[in-house]
Write a protein that binds this DNA or RNA. Structure first.
Length: 809
DNA sequence: ACTAATAACATTTTT
DNA sequence: TGTTATTAGT
């Protein structure tokens, strides 16, 4: 999406449909926004408009699904109405906003204001524990499946009591041979409460019941919010939908924005019906449709339309583009997944080299994370800089989780999952039998593990003297951290915990490469905490720099949200799910094979198949200029090579938009292939799957041989200008060793006048607070001019030049 | 209580 | 194939 550089705000920047949607504030409205149609633009302008009309920012609630979306929107609004007012908006994810409300209203729901938020791993671990305690067979009651049931119930606002009473649930669980699911659910909830913890779903569940059972509280919030806006409404679940209703039913000042064609999270409880029921629920709601796509070429838009037509029950809309027609969508078949990756890498290389397409403008999208590996290898071989999104997130790494478990205990010692994680890490001789005794005692008395550990009755539960002493040493350690929560800021306490817990010593011991990675991660965590403290000190004056506040923030973010302070240009590799909301000039959608995309798991039910198709729709519409589809006939899966045939989705795109290319690899099979993938012949019938494994499968650059016809001759030994170290993890380290990249690729060199001279990208500055750094981006003009600066010691920061104190070196 | 070996397993995943 | 969880052995 284009960024708004102009300061101030004018409705002239909008097309008629967008403008209508923005200025309609009299009642409820539903904005159906096709891909690339300026959905975020409408939301931001609408908020700016409301502010212009005199509404106070703190009376506006804007809900998004990701922190990233919220941050971006906030930033955009800031350029329109100023930082000051933007900051006071209630803008954030459902979970962060409602968690905030729950902490404020905690006494009504009998939690402490410091309750822990369990992540998915904690939830799963707790479910597993409960299943075992109930002596159920965990082959039958698979923790993941049970948790999915619990999650579905919560998303549908079904409490354990209601679940157990509901004959339909009971019957279907009995039929599925898991009759105890309701019991597990009930115990799970109770156990979370004992730990003073909530999972992600609970945040919504408790918010709903807080408002439902305390009308006075609900009324207070309902009166407070003069306008409520919701982004990505197609992704809301029932609970979210219901809460929005609780907050808006009287004033009915609500605007939701979404695209039913981009609903790809139903497996997480998202319900497209919410969009459809919206109009019934809010009688007289205005419907606005944004149909002009500003992102993609006509061919891409039309191809995507032709695809999505195969789904039933769409909200009718006519998405169109007035951009160039563009090139057809290229379809490439390869012999194997390895050749596919090599071919794509080669093509990417050529594009960069000959068409001067910056790495940043290229994305490789795949259905499953497992596919990234082959591409990683191919890209490394060709020395193409890349960045993998998703996968194992920073906060899921062991050493980070261990540290955070200590943090959590310092803030809430009742947190059972955190306690179990670190009670014997670093090893201090407390074994699982001991832990089990403590758990049993806690269960008997209906209290937390911590309550047992700190009770004088500890001696009475069959633990010997020596072990008891070890437990006491542990509780004393945690208690010391608890005290320091009150006096130290998060970063200082973090360092203290690393030292006193023995984690630092444990991690610093090793010299293996992976030990070094752990050390770096630990360092990165510490840097991040310091950054947090610095930011908070600057922003909000004093306070809110404690561990409590750090955890509140960190438990609701994933590192996708983290701004990438490594400004090196890279090709993006990610799943289609994580590409939602993004756009690239060139997109490769790889692994277009039956049983992979659409995924095997989805092929059974038409509903899931439609979701897969929407996923493909999302993938296609990420491309601005060029889109490439590729498939392999042989693919390694779980260790062995399997045959696969081209995706049936390829047939769902009107063939007039496609251009088939035949890879000429594995020469013995060439003829067969050529005849199979003719433009109008049916795809994937016969042939492919039955082919014998090619002898001496060569890994030549068959793809590129072909590609040369479309580009200039290529130098196959060309080096990429930027080197990328192996980087299994894309960490956002403040690693000062990274090569500094003068913004070579950006053609529009921007410069900004400051009181002390001309600032350009690449300028080195000395900031009074942050020290030395390099300007890596400039945005805005005049009073809104901003610079993104990568500092040597404190990472990357955005500076509003109007305020920033620095000198140019 | 800890380590090593082995069996089971395997979409997508905003929070 | 690669990870993760349980089990067996010291």
């Amino acid at each position: 999406m284009s960024s708004d550089i102009s300061s101030g705000f004018s409705l002239d920047d909008l097309n008629p449909a967008q403008r209508e949607a923005v200025v309609y504030t009299q009642g409820p409205s539903l904005v159906i926004a096709g891909a690339g149609s300026g959905k975020t633009r409408v939301l931001t302008y609408k908020i700016a408009y409301l502010l212009e009309q005199g509404m106070a920012p703190w009376n506006i609630l804007a809900l998004t699904f990701t922190n990233k979306a919220a941050d971006e929107m906030k930033a955009r609004i800031a350029t329109q109405v100023g930082e000051e007012r933007a900051r006071r908006l209630w803008m954030g994810t459902f979970h962060s906003i409602f968690a905030r409300i729950l902490r404020a209203e905690h006494e009504h729901i009998a939690f402490s204001s410091n309750f822990t938020i369990y992540d998915a791993a904690d939830s799963k671990s707790l479910v597993r524990t409960i299943i075992r305690e109930m002596q159920l067979d965990d082959k039958v009651y698979k923790p993941g499946t049970v948790l999915a049931h619990i999650s579905a119930a919560k998303n549908g606002l079904v409490t354990p009591d209601a679940y157990l009473r509901d004959p339909q649930m009971t019957r279907s669980d009995a039929a599925a041979n898991i009759p105890a699911t309701g019991q597990i659910y009930a115990r799970y909830m109770q156990r979370c409460r004992q730990s003073d913890a909530m999972d992600f779903d609970d945040i919504l569940l408790y918010t709903y019941f807080l408002f439902a059972q305390h009308p006075d509280v609900r009324q207070r919030y309902e009166e407070h919010f003069d306008f409520v806006l919701v982004d990505e409404y197609q992704d809301t679940n029932y609970a979210q939908h219901a809460i929005v209703w609780q907050l808006t039913q009287t004033k009915r000042h609500v605007c939701v924005v979404g695209d039913d064609a981009q609903s790809i999270y139903s497996f997480r409880g998202a319900n497209i019906d919410n969009i459809l029921t919206f109009q019934r629920l809010y009688e007289g709601a205005q419907l606005f449709k944004l149909e002009q796509n500003y992102r993609s070429t006509q061919i891409i838009v039309n191809a995507a339309n032709s695809l999505i037509r195969h789904n039933k029950g769409q909200i009718p809309k006519n998405v169109f583009s007035r951009k160039d027609e563009g090139q057809p969508i290229h379809v490439y078949g390869f012999f194997s997944d390895i050749e596919e990756a090599a071919g794509v890498a080669k093509k990417v290389q050529n594009m960069h080299q000959w068409d001067h397409i910056p790495w940043n403008d290229i994305a490789i999208l795949y259905r499953t994370n497992a596919q990234s590996r082959t591409f990683e290898e191919a890209f490394r071989k060709q020395e193409i800089p890349y960045r993998i999104f998703g996968g194992l997130s920073f906060y899921q790494r062991k050493e980070i989780k261990d540290m955070i478990a200590y943090f959590r205990l310092a803030v809430n010692p009742n947190d059972e999952e955190a306690l179990k994680r670190v009670i014997n890490y670093p090893a201090r001789g407390i074994g699982q039998t001991t832990v089990q005794r403590v758990i049993d005692a806690a269960q008997q008395q209906n209290v937390s593990l911590w309550a047992i550990l700190t009770s004088p009755a500890l001696a009475t539960i069959g633990i010997n003297r020596g072990t008891q002493a070890k437990l006491e040493a542990f509780t004393a350690l945690i208690q010391s951290f608890m005290e320091q929560v009150q006096t130290l800021d998060a970063a200082t306490l973090g360092r203290q915990i690393a030292r006193a817990s023995g984690i630092e010593a444990d991690i610093m011991r090793g010299r293996e490469p992976e030990d070094l990675a752990r050390q770096e991660n630990l360092q990165e965590l510490m840097d991040g905490m310091q950054q947090f403290v610095d930011d908070r000190e600057e922003e909000e004056g004093s306070g809110r720099t404690r561990m409590t506040h750090y955890l509140q923030e960190v438990s609701l973010i994933s590192d996708l949200d983290e701004s990438d302070d490594d400004s090196t240009e890279k090709v993006s590799l990610m799943t289609i799910h994580s590409a939602k909301g993004l756009e690239f000039r060139v997109v490769f959608i790889v692994g277009m094979e039956e049983n992979l995309f659409p995924n095997q798991m989805a092929s059974s039910s038409p509903r899931e198949l439609e979701e897969e198709r929407r996923l493909f729709y999302v993938a296609l519409t990420r491309a601005k200029e060029q889109c490439y589809l590729s498939y392999a006939q042989n693919r390694y899966r779980y260790g062995k090579s399997e045959f696969s045939s081209p995706s049936s989705f390829l047939r769902d795109i009107d063939s007039q938009y496609l251009e088939q290319h035949i890879s000429k690899s594995s020469s013995s099979n060439r003829l067969r292939q050529t005849s199979l993938f003719g433009r109008d012949s049916s795809l994937g019938t016969g042939g492919f799957g039955a082919r014998p494994f090619g002898e001496g499968q060569n890994r030549d650059n068959s793809f590129t041989d072909r590609i040369r016809d479309y580009n200039r001759p290529s130098n196959s030994f060309a080096q990429s200008p930027v080197r990328q170290q192996s980087a299994g993890y894309q960490s956002a380290t403040a690693d000062s060793l990274k090569p500094i990249q003068p913004a070579a690729s950006s053609s529009n060199v921007s410069e900004t006048q400051t009181a002390v001279g001309t600032l350009v990208v690449g300028s080195h500055i000395e900031h009074t607070r942050f020290g030395r750094g390099e300007v890596i981006a400039l945005a805005g003009t005049g009073i809104d001019a901003k610079a993104t600066v990568r500092f040597e010691n404190v990472g990357t920061k955005q500076l509003l030049l109007r305020f920033a104190k620095f000198t140019i070196i």
